[in-house]
Amino acid sequence: MHGLHIVVAVLAIWLVLAYLALPAIWKRAERQAVLAGREMVTRTSQGIEGDPINFGLVGEEPEVLCAFRSAGWILADSVTLRSSLKIAGSVALHRPDPAAPVSPLFYDGRVEDLAFQLPDGVSAAHRHHIRLWRIGDKVFHDRPLWLASASYDRSVGLSHFTLQVTHHIGPDLDAEREFVGQALGKAGAIRSFFQIQGVGPTLRGKNGGGDRYFTDGEVLIGVVAENCQLNPGAPVAPPDNPPHVDLRSSIIHTLGGRG
């Protein structure tokens, strides 16, 4: 009878872990009605899933432009024959192209509204970059919401899907999300941060170029300083996440780093 009690207790613990505790770690209740049920991933012009949404801003367009400009980021050129030849020369000849274009991605059925980059080296082969889509005009405190995908270009090569020339991104998208947030925060362009549920945690994501990535699935949202009233050096507190969200992030980053 004693052995039966042990079996029942073990079974009960397993049921609680498997069907209550562990599933709760991988879920996050979304309290922002405007975002509920949204697909949080971009797509290429061929309809292939691209980079996930992992960043966002609250603010008017001039405030968003001011925020990135204050942090040293550069508005990317539009994709034209001239700009395409210029970025090709930058990579091939190892020379600067600070406003090099980014390939178009689509969200909500339309191409990005804004794109910025921060060169990391001499040529456009390595750079931080971000695409932003304006989602609504009066979403948070009567201010527009922008959702964005931020990633780091680590090399130039061929797309695994279309064989077109493209940049290949670094796999740790959460690191790039934090990099953008820290850059804007240090420039005094952000008043506060909060997080929302994004594409969901994954260790085996793949973007439109066939590059693998991992992410905890969260989207970092920064509330931009109104009227470009910057406050450089002012500390910006990180988002106050539920403990299970931080635990989930730790698990993903530990496993992703091993991959």
Rank of each mutant, 00 (worst) to 15 (best):
G3V: 09
L11H: 03
A18E: 09
A18K: 04
L22E: 01
Q32S: 09
A33F: 08
A36E: 12
G37I: 08
M40W: 06
S45W: 00
S45A: 05
I48C: 07
E49H: 04
L57V: 12
A67F: 00
F68T: 05
F68Q: 02
R69L: 05
I74M: 07
D77S: 15
S84V: 12
L85V: 08
A88L: 15
S90H: 10
H94F: 11
V102C: 09
S103M: 12
F106H: 00
D108C: 09
E112H: 15
L114F: 09
A115V: 06
Q117K: 15
P119S: 11
D120S: 15
D120T: 10
V122S: 15
H126M: 12
H128A: 13
I130D: 10
R134L: 07
G136V: 02
R143E: 10
W146C: 01
S151P: 01
S151Q: 10
V156R: 09
V156C: 07
F161I: 08
H167D: 03
H168S: 11
H168N: 11
A175K: 04
A175Q: 06
F179H: 15
F179Y: 15
V180H: 13
Q182V: 13
A187I: 01
A189Q: 01
I190G: 04
R191T: 12
Q195M: 11
Q195P: 00
V199N: 12
V199W: 08
F214L: 05
F214Y: 15
T215P: 07
D216K: 00
G217Y: 08
E218L: 15
L220M: 08
G222A: 13
A225C: 13
N227W: 02
G233Y: 04
V236R: 02
P238R: 03
N241A: 14
L247T: 12
I251N: 02
G257R: 14
